[in-house]
Amino acid sequence: MLRRMTEPPFRPREKLVEKQKYFQNIHKHTYLKGPYDKITSVAIPVALAATSLYMIGRGIYNMSHGIGKKE
Rank of each mutant, 00 (worst) to 15 (best):
G68H: 01
Y31M: 13
L53F: 11
A43L: 12
K33A: 09
D37T: 14
K21I: 13
M63F: 06
L32A: 07
Y31D: 10
G59E: 04
K38I: 09
I56V: 14
R58Y: 02
S64K: 02
R11K: 08
D37C: 10
S64G: 04
Q20E: 05
H29A: 15
M55F: 12
I60N: 06
L16F: 03
N62M: 09
M5K: 10
I60T: 10
P45D: 03
H65F: 12
K69N: 11
Q20N: 10
I60C: 11
A43P: 00
P9Q: 00
M5P: 05
I39R: 07
T40G: 12
T51E: 05
L53G: 11
T51Y: 05
A47Y: 04
Y54C: 12
V17Y: 00
I26N: 08
L48M: 14
K21H: 03
A47D: 04
Q24T: 09
I56P: 00
G66D: 01
Y36S: 15
A50Y: 04
K38C: 14
Y61H: 09
D37E: 14
Y31Q: 08
K19F: 07
Y36L: 15
M63L: 11
K21P: 04
L2Q: 04
T40D: 02
Q20M: 14
I56Q: 00
P45A: 04
K15W: 00
I44E: 02
H27M: 08
M1P: 08
V17G: 04
R3D: 06
M5N: 06
T6C: 06
V17C: 11
E14W: 03
S52M: 10
F23E: 13
L32F: 07
T6A: 09
M5Q: 06
M5I: 15
R3M: 10
N25F: 01
D37Y: 07
E14R: 04
E14Y: 02
R4V: 14
H27D: 10
P12H: 05
L16P: 00
G59L: 09
K21Y: 01
E7P: 02
G66K: 03
V17E: 08
I67E: 00
D37A: 12
K28E: 07
S52I: 13
P45K: 01
G68V: 03
Y54V: 15
K21L: 14
E18N: 11
V17H: 02
T30M: 07
G57H: 00
M55G: 07
L2P: 11
G59R: 07
R11S: 15
Y22K: 11
H65W: 03
P8K: 07
I67D: 00
G57C: 10
I26A: 15
P35T: 14
P12M: 08
Y22S: 12
R4T: 12
